[in-house]
Amino acid sequence: MSILEIRDGSFEVLSVAGDTYLGGDDLDDQIVQWLLRDFRKRHGIDLSGDRNVILRLRELAEAAKIEVGRNRIARIRDDVFCRDQNGRVFPLDATLTEAEFNKMASAIIQKTFKVCDEALQSAHLNPSEIDVVILVGGPTRLPVIRQSVQHYFGIEPLSSVDPDKVVSIGAALQAYALTSRNSVGYRLLDVTPITLRIGTVGGFTEKIIERNTPIPIEQSKTFTTSRDFQEKVKLRVYQGESNRVDECELLGEFEFSGFRVAPRGEVKIEVTFEIDSDGIVNVSALEKATGLKASTTIQLSSGLSEADIEASRKNNMDLPVAMGESR
């Protein structure tokens, strides 16, 4: 979830929060589990270990989810669903009501609102201070989700934008802003979504750039060596909200050596993290006394790899924007 303040053409991101484990697939999974339980009750057979069955159930679950959203009820039927060794055929026949589906969805929906709480807290806002809610992604068409949003924020989510197109429309607007030779009248002011840290002794990390800091940005902290006559330091870059290494993700590391060898605590090393407006992280280490420096670059990946982007460009060569031009 992202909270933005839109004013005078400036689209300022106030905070970003997310749970990568939430999504439409998770609702489908809930239905699959429910179907497996139902089948086991009727026929005494546990199909949860059969991959083909699970794949088939996922297809049926996704269709049922959409149907329940439209008609408030969905009949899931497959007369020749599976066969045992003796050739006996077992049908699948289950009816998913809106009530049953809403029960399944509620646990997931609760998690979604936990994310909202987090984002609002970071932005120092109450749900009632939000003026517009834009829903993103097909699953948000489900009535239960729209109702929960209305209940949490006290306003109805916007219905004039297609939730499946919202992200691409935004990306297109930003692409135009970046390539246009005319004044566009709007500007995105983005933030970094996860705290960047450096590994220190004892399995801990030290925060260098807090999440929700506007980018581009640069922050430094000074550290010292932890052992007498240490000859090199290993700089490990992490992302995460915990100060414990085992709760963070390692993004990259590099070694810094050649500095003055001295008792611990006497060598001062300034570590600088820089995030540029494309989300690239540069980490450098500097021994202040001698000016000795080392650095490395880390790509914060968020979806497409360079190869994917290049492939996408090649496939769309007829569009001027792919050529780096604009009108």
Binding site: D8, G9, E12, T179, R181, R187, L188, P216, D276, S277
Partner: peptide
């Protein structure tokens, strides 16, 4: 931000200038 965000200068790719514009806006942030 309206005048000095680095995105304002994408059509002016002179390296020395880009370095200054970035340094300036990082400090503003």
């Amino acid at each position: 931000a309206r005048d000095f965000h680095p995105d304002c200068f994408r059509n002016f790719p002179v390296p020395e200038f880009q370095a200054q514009a970035n340094k300036l806006f990082k400090r503003i942030n």
